[in-house]
């Protein structure tokens, strides 16, 4: 008897479903909203002077677990915009074909010079197409939306609360009572 009940239930469920609004989102026409921290590809954004922000410190190249980043430092030069001396990169290559999207490179970047973007790369016909060179990475920065995470934000988020440690160590609560504000989470 149970089988008959279950059969009836199954038939009812599917028939009810058939008259419901489908949940499908037609992909090429409608893009499902991507989360704020969704990350799919990379970009090298400019700094506030319109120059590439990366100074070639190699931090990202060293931390990358898949070793997909290769860069060539260009040495220190006078900036054509500000006139100040700063470091430049000659070449920056990131191989998306072996990237795991762990965001560590973004996290270690002190100058927010590499960010991840929310729009994915187009599936490629050849493996070479998935290698992002500097040109492509800078174009990405202009064309695509950056993900929430930048180096400074992620570092700030993950730092231990600053006020408590010294308070405990000194054991003199009188001087520092006001707790540090909680790390800013949403500033966008």
């Amino acid at each position: 008897m149970g089988y008959f009940n279950d059969t009836a239930k199954a038939l009812r469920t599917t028939m009810v479903n058939a008259f419901r609004e489908p949940v499908t989102q037609e992909f090429p026409l409608v893009i499902r909203p991507r989360a704020e921290r969704f990350r799919a590809s990379f970009a090298l954004p400019d700094d506030e002077h319109g120059e590439v922000a990366c100074i070639g410190c190699l931090a990202c190249e060293r931390i990358c677990p898949s070793r997909v980043i290769k860069m060539k430092s260009g040495g220190k030069k006078d900036s054509p915009v500000t006139g100040k001396k700063r470091a430049y990169i000659d070449e920056f290559v990131l191989d998306l074909s072996a990237c795991i999207g762990c965001e560590l490179c973004v996290q270690v970047c002190n100058s927010d010079a590499i960010v991840m973007v929310r729009q994915p790369e187009v599936p490629a016909f050849a493996r070479e197409d998935l290698v992002l060179d500097m040109e492509k990475l800078r174009a990405n920065a202009k064309l695509k939306t950056a993900s929430w995470g930048t180096g400074t934000r992620l570092q700030e988020m993950q730092e231990p609360p600053k006020a408590e440690k010294p308070a405990v160590a000194k054991a003199s609560p009188a001087t520092e009572t006001a707790p540090a504000p909680a790390p800013a989470k949403e500033t966008v």
Binding site: L96, C99, A124, R127, L130
Partner: peptide, 29 residues
């Protein structure tokens, strides 16, 4: 080190993993 070392590959979908939309994008490509 990559399936294209032993068989031909027509479309490469980057991602770890790529989301379902990316797979559909790959099929469209």
């Amino acid at each position: 080190p990559g399936v294209d070392t032993f068989m031909p590959v027509d479309v490469y979908i980057p991602g770890c993993p790529p989301n379902p939309e990316a797979l559909m994008h790959g099929l469209l490509r």
